[in-house]
Design a protein around this nucleic acid. Structure first.
Length: 307
DNA sequence: CGGCAAACCTGCGAGC
DNA sequence: TGCTCGCAGGTTTGCC
């Protein structure tokens, strides 16, 4: 589900809500997602304070004291839900370290796809959680790993990633050079996380529309003027999507997880047969936005505006 | 090596 | 109502 803007939205919200809190209860409801959870993950998480939240590509990085990072990836259907957690634990509210407060102690019982649940406390010495963070992922294409910070750069998930779209290294010169060596369609090239980190199917379609470039164009056939426009288009589309709170996830702080707003601003994505954004084409004549399949994924584009 | 299809899963909406 | 089919925003694998 989430591409870069959605993960950025999640991370910004998480940063406000859970940075500074301490993990006082962990539950793993299954062995793993796309990959098995690392051995002993629950015990390693227990007791650690969350020091920061960052994003790399489509990964959320939950920084923990002791120089560890909890890596979350949301695959196609992953979400985070935060719920208040009223500690009603018998014993006059006393709770031991590592004790997990059972479902029913608070209002909202876990969903069957809540695979990882962290209970978080506020104060330094308080073991009673105030907040519960649930990683929910029906399709289980997501991923969760816990690694020492020193091992992060050479981690399999990160070692081959291309530059961040908003970083200084993502320049027309860089993209032009990479594309010039690729015989693949532009659409496939931009989906390749080694070329550029964070774009997914939606935002590739949207960025190509903004740039006026067809998804079918051979990557190496783009001239530098087109590459410059493409770089700018990618940055603008992503920035606008982040401003809108993403396309699919706005507020996971409620249990429901409301939608972001950007899906209302799609220029071409999902609009097969309809007019594109600010359309001046005669839809009756052109058939409107065209949908094709490339590398097994849907591409949406306007034949009139994109070449 | 590069590029593509298939596989990994579940849920949802459309159509019968 | 209930079934089947096609489709879904990601990543990895294996094949040509």
């Amino acid at each position: 589900m989430p591409e870069l803007p959605e993960v950025e939205t999640i991370c910004r919200g998480l940063d406000k809500a859970i940075t500074g809190l301490r993990i006082v209860g962990v539950r793993l409801n299954r062995q793993g997602l796309r990959k098995p959870f690392p051995t002993g993950m629950a015990a390693k998480l227990e007791g650690r304070k969350i020091t920061a939240i960052e994003r790399r590509a489509k990964y959320a990085l939950i920084r923990l004291e002791g120089d560890f990072t909890l890596i979350l990836h949301f695959g196609m259907s992953g979400r985070v839900h935060l719920l208040p957690c009223q500690a009603k634990v018998g014993n006059g509210g006393q709770k031991n370290h590592g004790q997990f407060i059972e479902p029913g102690a608070h209002k909202c019982p876990p969903d069957k796809h809540d695979h990882l649940i962290l209970q978080l406390s506020a104060a330094q010495n308080d073991v009673c959680p105030i907040l519960e963070m649930r990683l929910n992922d029906p399709r289980r294409f997501g991923l969760c790993d816990l690694v020492a910070n020193k091992d992060l750069p050479k981690h399999d998930l990160f070692k081959n990633l291309g530059p961040e779209p908003f970083s200084e290294s993502f320049t027309p010169a860089y993209l032009g050079k990479v594309l010039s060596g690729k015989n693949t369609p532009l659409k496939s090239a931009l989906l390749d996380q080694r070329v550029l980190a964070g774009l997914g199917n939606i935002y590739v379609c949207e960025a190509l529309f903004r740039a006026g470039l067809s998804p079918l164009r051979r990557a190496k056939d783009c001239n530098m003027d087109e590459v410059r426009i493409l770089v700018k288009s990618i940055k603008i589309v992503l920035a606008k999507a982040i401003d809108a709170g993403g396309s699919s996830i706005k507020d996971y702080v409620t249990a429901s997880g409301e939608l972001g707003y950007f899906q209302n601003q799609f220029a071409v994505y999902g609009k097969e047969g309809n007019s594109c954004k600010n359309c001046t084409c005669d839809v009756a004549k052109t058939g409107g936005v065209c949908r094709i399949t490339q590398a097994g994924r849907s591409s949406f584009y306007c034949k009139t505006k994109q070449h």
